[in-house]
Design a protein around this nucleic acid. Structure first.
Length: 129
RNA sequence: ACUAUCAGCCGGCCAUCGCUCAUCGCAGGAUGGGAGGAAAGUCCGGACAGCAAAGGGCAACGCACCGGUUAACGGCCGGCGCCCCGGUUAGGGGUAGAGAAAGUGCCACAGAAAAUAACUACCCGAAAGGGUAAAGGUGAAAAUGUGAGGUAAGAGCUCACGGCUUAGGGUGGUAACACCGUUUGCGGGUAAACCUUGCGUGCUGUAAUGCCACGUAAAUCAACCUUGGAGGGCGGCCCGCUCAAGCUGGUAACAGCAGGUUGAAGGGUAGGCAGCAAGACCUCAACAGUAAUGUUGAGGCCAGAUAAAUGAUGGCCACUCUUUUUGAGUACAGAAUCCGGCUUAUGGCUGAUAGGUUUU
RNA sequence: GGCCCCGUAGCUCAACUGAAUAGAGCAUCUGACUACGGAUCAGAAGGUUUCAGGUUUGAAUCCUGACGGGGUCA
């Protein structure tokens, strides 16, 4: 099942609940990796791995630019999310990635940063102590 | 080739991977649809939904030449008036354009005086006093302009030609209005100052609203009230109307219990479905109309998410920049209930119409 | 998505019932005082009143439209 969905990023893997997002912002673990900031939290196993993506409208006033950045971030996560699935325990992860840079990125930059970010999270999860 | 207006299209194709919706399938999956002219600003107008539907008056807000168009509009189309440009002719452009002769206010500085005029001045007169507004000169604006008569000096005091204006008339036009002749008068500007007149307008908005699921609050405190009534409703206010919660004891004031309204503090949920995608819809053609627009016929189905889909990478082609390669880039910009407008942001290509210049 | 408010010197605010040089404090600069600096005193500079158009003789003020910033909702 997981192998089949290796490069997909469907509705079930997006963090959509307003309540979950508020919980994440209230008590999530913080992690900085320029140009991103990440908040993540362990959740029960039936939640699965869920991601939300965000760009501040203070840095990017045009909606078309925010959409562009969010699409690049989702695409990068889709290609490298298998890093997170090679984990030891079966609990789920909920996390949000926020773009904090002030300039329009290109895909290669986003891809590189997302990859290192996912490796960092994977390291925290697999070695909690 | 250039300028203006109108209409249309935005990079094209291929490969791999992916997102969202619908349909089919037990499932893996397959097929099909998937941003705009402005989706933007939220400046107007509606559809739709809820609340309320005895009224009357006032206030508030909006609009303001005429006719047409439309579901409606402050939009659009055509005309009229005014202003500007133009060998001041043809023509082109702009225009929030009712009323200043209903009333109130304001008009700095300068000036005699800024709106019931009189400083210098002119005339009569011995003076007291009276008559007058031409000349001075400031200002954005100075008491209807020019000429003649008239007079002591003057003055629409009178006359001629004008300007504006009141009333009623004739001709043309649906009308605004234009022209003609009669007549009343001479009142500076400002209504995007208050205001007056005419016409119109319920309020709140898809986070409306309905249903389902889950969950709690039943309680506490304060104030007021229980038919001589707190408070609620009828658009904001008033009148008026209407709804609205009581018993016991006591002569009464009041007390007790109960109830009602408002507020404080506090508690709970913030999930799902509908609304929500076939409509003042789109394309083409014909007809009516100067046009906006309308009618008829044929064909078509064209996003529907909810921390929010419509994308990424590679290759070739087209164009621009950079010194060739390399490289960078390809307008403005991303639906959120849906329509009709307005405003703003916008690079390029194609076509049509109009204009003048150059070449043949 | 709806509704509401505000833009004045580098900063914080006046002047908002139109009137001609837009004012005050802090900050900046110059000079004096001091051995130097601070404080103090004197003086100066700094403004397309967010932008564009209109009404008016005259606009920061009134009107319209843009641009920018902020707040609020079940």
């Amino acid at each position: 099942m997981q192998g089949l969905h290796k490069y997909k990023f469907g509705k079930e893997e997006k963090l959509k609940s307003r309540k979950g997002i508020q919980l994440l912002f209230a008590s999530g673990n913080k992690l900085n990796q320029f140009p991103f900031r990440c908040l993540w939290l362990r959740v029960p196993a039936d939640e699965g791995v869920r991601l939300a993506v965000s760009v501040s409208s203070r840095n990017f006033k045009k909606a078309v630019h925010r959409n562009r950045i969010k699409r690049l971030m989702r695409e990068a996560y889709r290609q490298h999310k298998s890093i997170l699935f090679e984990r030891k325990d079966s609990r789920g992860i909920a996390f949000v990635i926020i773009y904090t840079g002030t300039e329009m990125p290109v895909f290669s930059q986003v891809e590189k940063a997302v990859k290192t970010l996912l490796e960092k999270i994977s390291g925290f999860i697999n070695e909690p102590h």
